[in-house]
């Protein structure tokens, strides 16, 4: 498994000037989430780790910028899934099946909204290479927003 993961990482790693994959600091992103207060919709530090990543060799090209944005999005996405899982566990205890189904429906509706929103933004810039940056940034900001919202929802436990 580790070996497969390693091979995949090698295959997926963007080729940079010195052959290093573009990385973001997971600690920095998790700290950003932890420091985002309750009920703040948009963590203002979302995107900071991607910005730092963009200063790495190869990080300032359009491909590099998008790679950095996606790397940070992956961490937020992992946190989103963690929070979603926690919410489901909580509702198992307090609300049962009905609440879990509603949570799932809400999450599916959010995914459709995210896709419609980010597709629209991408297409606003269809004539230029910036479109991929705009699309990737949209996914990053929306995923961070949703991860925090799910975290806060679970805190609303009656």
């Amino acid at each position: 498994m580790l070996r497969v993961g390693f091979m995949l990482a090698l295959m997926l790693a963007p080729v940079t000037a010195i052959g290093q994959p573009l990385k973001v600091s997971e600690t920095m992103i998790r700290t950003c989430a932890a420091q985002t207060p309750y009920a703040v919709a948009q963590p203002t530090c979302a995107g900071d780790a991607a910005n730092i990543c963009q200063a790495l060799p190869g990080g300032s090209t359009t491909t590099g910028i998008v790679e950095c944005l996606r790397a940070e999005t992956d961490i937020w996405d992992a946190m989103l899934n963690e929070e979603y899982g926690k919410a489901r566990t909580t509702f198992d205890r307090i609300g049962g099946e009905d609440l879990k189904i509603r949570l799932r429906d809400a999450q599916r509706a959010w995914i459709a909204f995210r896709d419609a929103e980010c597709t629209m933004r991408y297409h606003q810039w269809i004539g230029g290479t910036i479109r991929t940056v705009v699309g990737a940034n949209c996914h990053l900001q929306m995923t961070a927003n949703r991860a925090i919202a799910l975290r806060d929802l679970a805190r609303n436990e009656p």
Binding site: F91, G95, D98, L99, R102, L103, D105, A106, R108, A109, W110, A112, F113, D115, A116, E117, T119, M120, H123, Q124, L153, N156, E157, P158
Partner: peptide
């Protein structure tokens, strides 16, 4: 773009309704 905007806003309405229905049920 006009159609994409309408699609986005409809998706938002569905998301809003599903999210708030779930919060009320909570």
């Amino acid at each position: 773009m006009g159609d994409r905007l309408v699609q986005m806003q409809r998706a938002w309405i569905a998301y809003r309704d599903a999210t708030c229905a779930y919060e009320r049920r909570q």
